[in-house]
């Protein structure tokens, strides 16, 4: 039905192809540094997609979403510190912890709306942040080095191999994009999007929205925790900075920049945000002076973000 191709589709396709080919493209262009840049971009994109699920499609503006990056990351860091390097232990613990924390936080936050919701998500995330700062055994502010990347115990997924690490991230990104798409068009997504538009009306239709919003909140937390798991493995390092409120703010900015409530907006936002801040910071140390106003202009004048400018109108693009 909606088969019109917009520039937004072209850009999204181009970015996916670029992500898929960078490990071969970058060395050919004599810019091997771009492999790690794109690995980072993809991890941020996964986190931004997870935020987009609740913020873009559910209207829940979480200002503490980076907390799940931290939890996912510290699951790898702390278990590794105690010589537990098996991914089959680390991954379920990362996922389980993120789900549990998101469930508890969600139960508290989802009683509120608007600015109160934003403030409570921020406050709860800061609690976990300060917990990590005070954990002297695990490096406090200085963070924790990770000697061994998570071990899947098979020859197939050996994260110590840079190319395998890269394509593992790529595969998770594709999986998250796919999951986001299906969730948004599914019955669950109908309820979520409708509740953003008019929650009272959804209840008047006979749907108790709270449980669906809470489920979305937990799913987003787990997805973001996965990004944290990948980030810790990629950087071989975790620190409280991963879940600093700056990071949560950057996640919001990326999503808005790319286009909230669009399927590829978070990916586009992550690319633009990280490439631009990377480039600007090589030109001047006062790059924030340029970057800040740029973001404000996008938010003010391009309400659908980059994807909106490129003609993406529906939530399914």
């Amino acid at each position: 039905m909606r088969s019109q191709l917009t520039p937004a589709h072209a850009v999204a396709t181009l970015l996916i192809v670029l992500c898929a080919t960078i490990p071969y493209l970058a060395p050919a262009l004599d810019e091997p540094f771009y492999v790690i840049v794109f690995a980072r971009i993809m991890i941020w994109a996964i986190a931004a997609i997870s935020l987009n699920l609740i913020m873009g499609f559910g209207g829940m503006i979480s200002f503490g979403h980076a907390v799940y990056l931290g939890i996912g990351g510290y699951a790898v860091g702390i278990l590794g510190f105690h010589d537990v390097t098996s991914a089959w232990i680390q991954l379920p613990i990362a996922i389980g912890l993120c789900a549990l924390v998101a469930l508890v936080f969600g139960v508290i936050c989802l009683r509120t709306r608007g600015i109160y919701f934003i403030m409570i998500t921020l406050a709860l995330a800061q609690m976990v942040f300060f917990l990590s700062v005070s954990a002297e055994r695990y490096g406090s502010d200085d963070g924790l080095n990770i000697l061994w990347r998570s071990e899947f115990g098979s020859g197939l997924i050996d994260l110590e191999d840079g190319v395998v690490m890269y394509y593992t991230i790529f595969a998770v990104l594709l999986g998250c994009l796919l999951l986001q798409w299906r969730m948004v068009v599914s019955r669950f997504g109908m309820v979520l999007r409708a509740s953003q538009s008019n929650d009272t009306r959804v209840q008047a239709i006979g749907i108790p929205t709270y449980r669906y919003r809470l489920a979305a909140f937990v799913i987003a937390g787990v997805m973001c925790g996965l990004a944290g798991f990948l980030q810790a493995n990629l950087e071989r390092f975790v620190s409280p900075d991963m879940m600093n409120w700056h990071r949560s703010g950057e996640l919001i900015l990326m999503t808005v920049l790319g286009g909230t409530a669009t399927l590829f907006g978070p990916l586009v936002g992550a690319v633009v945000f990280l490439l631009l801040s990377e480039t600007l910071s090589t030109i001047t140390i006062h790059w924030h002076l340029v970057f800040g106003p740029f973001l404000i202009l996008v938010v003010l004048f391009a309400r659908g973000g980059v994807m909106g400018l490129l003609g993406s109108r529906t939530t399914r693009d």
Binding site: R182, M183, S186, F188, M190, Y212
Partner: peptide, 14 residues
């Protein structure tokens, strides 16, 4: 969809 029961269906397009 509401009268057909719960909406915890995450995959199929409504």
């Amino acid at each position: 969809q509401a009268r057909q029961g719960h909406s915890f269906r995450f995959w199929q397009s409504a």
